[in-house]
Amino acid sequence: MNLLNEWAFIGVFVAIAWVFPALPVVLSAFVRPRKPNAIKMQTYECGVETVGDTWVQFKVQYYIYGLVFLVFDVEMVFLFPWALAYNQLNFFAFGAGLVFIFLLTDALIYAWRRNALEWA
C-alpha cells in the first residue's frame, strides 16, 4: 500500500467513524419521551436556583498551564524527528539534542522558581 492509500483509509475512517456513536443517539430520539418543562430544564446547582451567569471570568492559572504546555508541545515537534533519526546519527547529534532539551529545562526551572506551576 502506498502513502496516499493509507491516508485514504484515515479519510474514510474520519468520515464514517462518527456514524456508529451517533446511531444510538439518533435512535433514542425516536423512542424516548419528550416532556420538557421550565423547572426540569433548569441547570443543576446544589438544589437551589442558579445564581448569576455561568460564563464568568476564569482564573489566569489555567492559562499559564496552557502556555507551559504549548511550549513543551512545540518542543516535542522538534524532538520527534530527532528521535526518529537518532539511530543513524553520530554522537554530535546526542549533544545537539542535549543542548536543545537543556535550554527547555531552563524554562521549566524558571517557571518552577517563579511559582508559576503552583495551583493557587
Partner: peptide, 9 residues
C-alpha cells in the same frame, strides 16, 4: 521557546 515561556510567565 524558552524566551516565549519566560515572557508569558
Amino acid at each position: 521557546l524558552t524566551a516565549a515561556m519566560i515572557g508569558a510567565i
